[in-house]
Design a protein around this nucleic acid. Structure first.
Lengths: 145, 145
DNA sequence: TCGCTTATTGCGAGTAATTGCAAATACAAG
DNA sequence: CTTGTATTTGCAATTACTCGCAATAAGCGA
């Protein structure tokens, strides 16, 4: 019983059933070269190898992985959610709503805010993969000209 | 040529054309009793009085109002975006991803984060109507039991 | 190994929001 | 008031995602 991937082992321990679909999706999401993947990209990557997969299953599996804290999801505004494995470490995305450029910002900037929410409201905010919308320096300069 | 609503006047000054549809949508979004409205609610409210309106026009008009800074939009996670007029004042929504309860939090908590982003990255973040996802105190207690 | 139970999948329908394009119309100029 | 034209609208198609339900199959015990 050798499972090849720690995510599989974690899911098994938490009493999820290990299906070929889930194995393929986990394989795809964790071996992706880029930092962020969309559900559609995962679907295509897996579908190339095996046609036994439905897009709804991709969404449902990613949902489980997010709930179990193995991956994180962010809305970068391009009309699709993006997913990242948690071992990339917490980070913030600053998304410009004019040029759609994404700037990666230091997580430490938002950490005090998370602490304050926990202290004041008992609320544990998901800030490890936060997307913040706004206007970047370049576009701001262009607007003010 | 008396326009009744400051938003109309602002749009006219910025060289948008004033159509009956835009007037009705602005009327609906600003006279709504509740703090947040959805595009669908606005559409229904206006459609009751005049059938000359399409849902796509509602979305396009709201988009303009957001871009012009007259209203703000937030994704509270229920599958629908909610809109609020800016004069309600800045506020944060803490959305629990288990029970979907929404807690209104003090804007002052997030203000230092916005300042830091501006200082360090020249990025002007839209934080005046931010939705933050996480787990509320009640659900957290239930999970840890 | 063979069933049994229950989680999971695939499929199709449904939802909120966006977009391309032709028809309609706001508004300025004559 | 009429005309010209660029903007805006309505419509239909499309996208990203979700959901209900019947069929399938994972994992357990015998």
């Amino acid at each position: 019983m050798h499972d090849h991937h720690p995510f599989i082992e974690t899911l098994r321990q938490r009493e999820y059933r290990i299906t070929p679909q889930r194995e393929m999706i986990i394989e795809a999401v964790t071996t992706s070269g880029s930092e962020h993947v969309t559900a559609e990209e995962i679907f295509e990557q897996v579908h190339d190898k095996s046609s036994a997969l439905n897009i709804a299953t991709v969404y449902r599996t990613l949902e489980i992985l997010v709930e179990e804290g193995l991956i994180s999801r962010a809305d970068l505004g391009g009309g699709q959610m993006v997913y990242a494995t948690s071992h990339h470490g917490p980070h913030i995305h600053l998304v410009c709503r004019y040029c759609w450029q994404v700037i990666d910002a230091d997580y430490d900037l938002i950490a005090p805010f998370g602490d304050a929410l926990r202290a004041q409201y008992g609320f544990s905010a998901d800030l490890q993969h936060l997307a913040v919308f706004g206007v970047c320096a370049t576009c701001m300069a262009a607007l003010e000209e």
